[in-house]
Design a protein around this nucleic acid. Structure first.
Lengths: 233, 233
DNA sequence: ACAAGCTAACTGGTATACCAAATACCAGGC
DNA sequence: GCCTGGTATTTGGTATACCAGTTAGCTTGT
């Protein structure tokens, strides 16, 4: 169980490879908005700033490119990829299916330990939400989803979902914390019950519906933002 | 002013980067079986053999690792990832969903040009199949699937499917050419008709069913192989 | 003054050499 | 025979240099 609660960029924790740490660091900066869309990243400059050489930096950047966070133009530099309403649509279309698949598989294959973990994360999420700690609630919700994917027992699905989770976090970051915690918790609880009851069809349906709901609220944000922009222009 | 206005697809493929070429080369070797599962890859040795330095080789290997073709153990070297019945199951579970999604989206968004391309590929596949050129038929079938994904209009879906296609090719390679061309063509034709008729639900259903059929025949191969092995041992 | 062409700086791509860390294997001592 | 320690191997990482496009600025000619 990897609760990605505290991922400190401090060099000296466990010794992951430098490439990995640089990757995480840059990814977080993009997700958090420290590196906004369109920002130009210069290899030598960035390597110097991070205190690493160009090789691990390049390897980290290559991975970020593959995962859609960077756009690398050969000999023209790298820029942080834009993320708009259209990209959000693409993301949710895929997530709706993969989350549905994960939930269905989880209903079939989840171990009791995994079910217990889901229950625990759900309780934490509910608690954080009730206490008004939206940020924590969102993190626990993400962990809950991750646990479902893990419980699916399909490692390929986990591989595919991991970068999508990162993109989703970026989207949530862009759309501030508009994430209505309460209805989410309710949906999560029903989803959990379906998985616990081994009702694969219902679990899949609930998961898909849940993602669709998230999509709608995210797209609502974009259409609102567009309206605001057209005023200012 | 210049907010990422330059989204040019003018990335001429005249000269790919060395990293890209090495990546493709190694991937093909793994798919074709020149580098069998379990084979150990030594960086400097391989770099020397390919006539490149370690940097582009490492970047290519990193990508292969992410896409599941290599397993890199920290400071213990890289080995070609194994691909067994279980992995095939994982792959088909995901593909069933993503191909279904792609077909549904393609039914909604395919342009007439894309429909025409599908039709052409289908005709070629049929022709190759009738002429007994199984290898060509399989290639055209793959192109047909790829065209559906492209017609989905979801670039994220394309990104996700590309590495899965490579894995599928590897699987087909392992299972020789057991791919019964004839029934495949029939299913493809019905799938095409559903897309052409803008029947998204039917297209999705047909695509999923088609993948499920492919899975069954692939898994049949594995269980046969297992039986043979248990004889010998 | 303006446009075309050239040049120089910038930046990514690659090569080479080197060091550090970790592992694996072998030899020697108990 | 087993454990320990050293050494070779291999990867991870860095520094440095050079090459090759790309861009932008300058020069030059009309």
């Amino acid at each position: 169980m990897t609760t990605r609660a505290d991922r400190r960029p401090t060099i000296g924790e466990t010794h992951q490879s430098l490439r990995e740490r640089v990757y995480v660091e840059l990814r977080e900066r993009i997700i958090e908005g420290t590196f906004p869309a369109g920002m130009r990243l210069v290899e030598r400059e960035l390597a110097d700033q991070l205190g690493v050489s160009r090789i691990p930096l390049r390897e980290a950047m290559q991975r970020l490119e593959q995962e859609g966070f960077l756009t690398v133009q050969a000999r023209r530099g790298s820029v942080v990829t834009d993320f708009g309403a259209q990209d959000a649509t693409y993301l949710f279309d895929v997530r709706e299916n993969l989350e549905g698949l994960a939930a269905g598989l989880a209903a079939r294959h989840a171990t009791t330990a995994q079910l217990r973990t889901m229950e625990r994360l759900l309780a934490r999420s509910r608690k954080s939400s009730d206490a008004g700690r939206l940020r924590q609630a969102v993190a626990h919700n993400a962990d809950f989803h991750q646990q479902i994917v893990e419980a699916s027992g399909n490692p390929l699905l986990q591989e595919l979902m991991a970068p999508l989770d990162a993109r989703l976090r970026r989207l949530f970051r862009l759309t501030s914390d508009l994430n209505d915690g309460d209805p989410m918790c309710g949906e999560h609880e029903r989803l959990y019950e379906a998985i616990r009851d081994r009702d694969a069809a219902r679990a899949e349906e609930l998961a898909r519906h849940h993602v669709a709901g998230t999509r709608d609220s995210a797209l609502r944000y974009f259409s609102d933002a567009a309206t605001q922009h057209s005023d200012g222009g």
